[in-house]
Design a protein around this nucleic acid. Structure first.
Length: 285
DNA sequence: TTCCAGGATGCGA
DNA sequence: TCGCATCATGGA
């Protein structure tokens, strides 16, 4: 089937780096092809996209979807200026400028970060692919792409094929949380209506969603940019770059990050995460 | 074989 | 409230 190719011209004063944005670990269903194009599945859409300077060329989505998904209308220079508080974050900004926090669908983001706990990125990607194959709808007959499972797929308890997804101990968490959210159509609106702290507590009532996953979900799916997720990498980076934090727990690091970087602390977290020194043995891109 | 990964849960003190 | 052990899985 012929699919229309479209283009979008970026504003020169609003930096955007497609590669940094898709390869920093915030999304799990994008792959870079040898020819420089990126291909990803968002909901039930297969999107292919390429950047050449200020021009984005893509297919599989409307320009509005692309603008919204990549948050192209947010004033990135203003955000980066607000978090650019010392040499450590400044270096992270300089080496990743153009990275934008993607606006992910809440349902998909929540389940993805639930099964992401205590795993590495390649393993997370495989789990999400397996989950999509078992419970999602086939998008393309010939290429065998599967959309992320719809909530309807989890409204019954017939989830035997979760066994094939090899989620480990996360399986029961996914089962409980997916079934609960699938039958609670108002949960997204309820989260949006709450304050940051309240919405975080609400998310943490879901089985398998703890402090870190809740902050990822708020940051990546609910545009709560004050969220500052602390995982093993951020813990390590913050201890190393801010010596006063040595020996402190994740909660203290989270609060420091939020107070220090302000209302866009989540952007600071993402830039520090993107600038982390990943051992070659663990690099996935 | 051993270590580690975008942690969360449950239990005991 | 805090610290700690435990929990599957897969890659290097």
């Amino acid at each position: 089937m012929w699919v229309r190719m479209r283009t979008l011209t970026l504003r020169p004063d609003q930096p955007f780096d497609l590669h940094q944005t898709l390869s920093c670990g915030q999304v799990f269903r994008w792959q870079k092809e040898d020819n420089g194009w990126w291909q990803g599945i968002v909901g039930a859409q297969v999107i292919r996209i390429h950047q050449d300077g200020n021009t984005l060329t893509f297919r599989g989505a409307s320009p509005k979807v692309i603008r919204d998904y990549f948050a192209l209308d947010m004033n990135l220079p203003e955000i980066l200026a607000s978090i650019d508080r010392d040499t450590a974050i400044h270096a992270a900004i300089e080496s990743n400028r153009g990275l934008r926090i993607i606006q992910q669908p809440p349902w998909e983001c929540t389940l993805s970060y639930l099964i992401a706990t205590f795993s590495n990125i390649p393993t997370i990607q495989r789990r999400i692919e397996a989950l999509s194959r078992e419970f999602g709808k086939k998008i393309s007959e010939e290429e065998k792409y599967y959309g992320f499972p719809d909530p309807k797929a989890f409204r019954s308890r017939c989830l035997d094929s979760l066994e094939n997804c090899r989620l480990g101990y996360r399986r029961s968490y996914l089962e409980d949380t997916a079934c609960r959210l699938a039958s609670d159509t108002g949960w997204e609106d309820r989260i949006r209506a709450l304050s940051y702290e309240e919405s975080r507590k609400e998310l943490m009532t879901l089985r398998g969603i703890g402090p870190k996953a809740a902050d990822c979900i708020l940051l990546f799916a609910f545009q709560r940019y004050e969220a500052f997720p602390v995982d093993v990498w951020i813990h390590r980076i913050m201890e190393e770059r801010y010596p006063d934090l040595r020996g402190k727990g994740n909660e203290a690091i989270r609060r420091f990050g939020q107070e220090y970087f302000g209302k866009y602390a989540g952007y600071a977290q993402e830039y520090l995460f993107a600038a982390r020194q990943v051992p070659m043995s663990q690099a996935s891109w």
